[in-house]
């Protein structure tokens, strides 16, 4: 999946990156060995997982002020969300086992 590398005449000078936030195109979800599985029912939408997620991978509905899930494209599986959740809404499950299930 490696993108074709560009020649020196094709890229902006000085190593300047002109597309802000394009790291969003780099999916870190592949790093994950354990996945946080969220229990919607017990969630009180306190947003502790959201404020502490180091990968900005907690998805929210801004208008309705609701937590809506984990963005698995970026979640690295650190487990911080599970630790900080006051209602223990997350279960960390091994990715391999989840695939087997």
């Amino acid at each position: 999946m490696a993108a074709k590398l560009k020649g020196w005449k094709e890229i902006p000078e000085a190593g300047t990156i002109v597309e802000p936030g394009n790291a969003r195109n780099y999916k870190t979800g592949g790093w994950r060995s354990d996945r946080p599985v969220w229990n919607k029912e017990t969630c009180i939408h306190c947003f502790f997982c959201w404020i502490w997620c180091p990968d900005m991978a907690v998805q929210v509905d801004q208008a309705n002020k609701k937590m809506t899930g984990i963005n698995l494209e970026y979640c690295k599986g650190c487990g911080v969300c599970a630790e900080v959740c006051p209602k223990k809404c997350f279960t960390m499950k091994n990715e391999k086992e989840l695939t087997n299930e």
């Binding site: 590398l5 560009k6 020649g7 020196w8 890229i11 000078e13 000085a14 190593g15 300047t16 990156i17 002109v18 802000p20």
Partner: peptide, 15 residues
């Protein structure tokens, strides 16, 4: 823009 990014073997030489 982002200036002064970490530029490894893929692009340092081109720059």
């Amino acid at each position: 823009v982002t200036m002064g990014a970490l530029d490894l073997y893929d692009y340092y030489f081109e720059h």
